[in-house]
Design a protein around this nucleic acid. Structure first.
Lengths: 206, 206, 206, 206
DNA sequence: GATGAATGAGTATTCATTCAT
DNA sequence: CATGAATGAATACTCATTCAT
């Protein structure tokens, strides 16, 4: 009972913050960092401009917060997928499916996000790339570890596991973006199938 | 005589246009679309700002022109590589090497370019994506055609050639970006090797 | 008992008001009217911003109140000095010393204050000048009266006493500001000595 | 003939700059630094806001320029007055009259200026004070030099010439401000007379 | 009655674009 | 026909003030 009051305020604040981030996300993913003004964000979130500044130090901070939160969620999901107790091949499947799930859920965001992770960005602030880059690499390394075990178990070829991880990551990005861009031409099932098939077996007959 | 004068003027104009585009390219790839002002471009190109506007309708138009020209060059190189008279596996190698060449030559631009092609952009004008997308797809289809012949010749597995093309493209992008980002950690040879190895043979032992 | 409650509240209120004014004074004299925000004042005084607005109609009002109170104190001291029962020359000394005391005590404020009195200000509200001006003039007139008596007693020359008062006031301001600005170069004793010497005897040899 | 064209442009520019400074001066002296917006200045000067920024780096720079130019003019006049070949008493008269002239011409500015020189200011930028302070002191020292010669010639009492200069400066400021504030009550002649009378002869009868 | 979250008008500054010379 | 001076819309951010709790 006594506990509820502060909790309520906290929750209110959290909800407001969330509404702002949601509005910002929507606008940023449609028009990019420079294509959106703080007034637009405030208006879309239905707050006064000053209120937005109570929650975020500035446009940059708002943007960074957004990207950071997405990165954290994204990587939690993937790390989780990779930490299951399964054999190498199944784990690759888990990874691909988890990533597909993230893509499906966050479609609009991901362009923003991958752009950041890739550095193909207009960097509002350099530091951002780094943090996201670290998280991205962390998943890559977790993936590499999984693949390394596969190599040790002789399930996979004796290739550098980190490179294999990079390759798998690239393949999933490529296919999943294709899927998001044109779901008719690149249906989900076909994509996920292709990724694993190509990654694991390659293209060569034999 | 009569013919020369216009021709000379034409050539002068062309040269000026080129100087502007070169200046713009340099600036855009360093600072991104929004990080560069028309005045900076004019200054770097050593023209008056008004002159720049004689050649390009505006900043957007200048930017689009730039991206478009790059896309055209980029694809010419790749199409050329794919049109050689060689066997499938060698052509895959040609493609990968040609792309690596383009990456090496244009390092700074490519972030801009791939960002555009991928749509991870701040779209100054929607139309741009489309044109570049068409060119990009055109290469992909040429690549798919090469792979299809490989399938017919039973050199490659009976997988959808377009998907294989997408995969190969994704793999090259991924590895070549890694290489550009951190050439020490991801040396060229290792990358090119991995791309073909993984694409053709896959990761599975056996 | 009955009487005490309101009295207590009154006193509480008075204390709070004082704390606000003290905080405001400190901040204003350091950073000037525009360099201080109401939030800063509230924070320094350890009240909620709303509470400050219960006591003062707004920033202007708070500022005016502050200046007004200082002016009242300032003039009380000077009037007091001038009301002593001494001869003219001694009273001039009293005046100079009293003013020096005020300067020493309020150093930081006085820039604010004299700026106001002189009108060299950014007038948050015009009315302020007037009130302070009246108080200032009141002292000047009291001083003039003292000097007038000196004229009558033939201790002073037959010059307009009001002008002499203005002159004395100007001299004290000038010297005391010099002193405040650079106490090493313009030590107190030298200053006070110079003021009386120059005012009373002039510069001319003979 | 050939020389005129650039000269014309130069003059145009100079005129525009002057119009901006004039507008700014008028507004600043009425409402103070913080009471005036760049838009107001632009509007009053009948230029677009951007044009103002072509001439001045920003509000601060505009303000500083203004103050600096005034200070330079002001001091030129006074130094000039003090450099005449006359006897000490006449030079004191020159100084007072020159200063009165400056006050009369620049009435509106001087509040701003003296406020700056005195430090009773809201310092947009600290450096400003210093430059103006230096110029101010320079005049004071020139005046002190004049007075020192008077001392050597035994025309003046053996008091510290710098202090005498400070006193004379203070007296002129005081009286001339009084005059500006209320010319009826403090007519020019009476003021100028009082300054010299009091400064030179003092108040004491005999 | 105190609080401080929310408000939104106001400000300095930038920069794409135009057009008189 | 090139020029670059002039333009002014747009933008991030601040802060005095209000009012629901």
């Amino acid at each position: 009972m006594e506990e509820e009051r502060p909790s309520r305020r906290e929750r209110d604040k959290e909800r407001q913050r969330g509404e702002m981030l949601t509005a910002a996300l929507e606008l940023f993913s449609k028009s990019g960092y420079h294509g959106v003004s703080m007034h637009e964000i405030a208006k879309k979130a239905e707050f006064a401009i000053g209120t937005v500044y109570k929650f975020f130090r500035g446009k940059e901070h708002l943007y960074e917060t957004l990207m950071s939160e997405i990165a954290v969620k994204y990587h939690a999901v993937l790390k989780d997928a990779l930490s299951k107790e399964e054999d190498t091949v199944a784990l690759v499947g888990e990874y691909v499916r988890a990533k597909a799930g993230v893509f499906a859920d966050n479609a609009s965001v991901l362009r923003l996000y991958v752009a950041e992770a890739r550095g193909a960005s207009f960097n509002p602030r350099a530091g951002l790339d780094e943090e996201i880059g670290r998280l991205y690499d962390d998943v890559l390394e977790a993936l590499a570890l999984v693949l390394e075990k596969g190599v040790q178990k002789k399930v996979l070829k004796a290739l550098d596991p980190y490179y294999m991880a990079v390759a798998l990551d690239g393949l999933t990005n490529t296919f999943l973006f294709s899927w998001l861009k044109d779901p008719e031409r690149h249906p989900y099932q076909a994509n996920v199938g292709m990724i694993t098939e190509l990654f694991l077996r390659g293209s060569l007959a034999r």
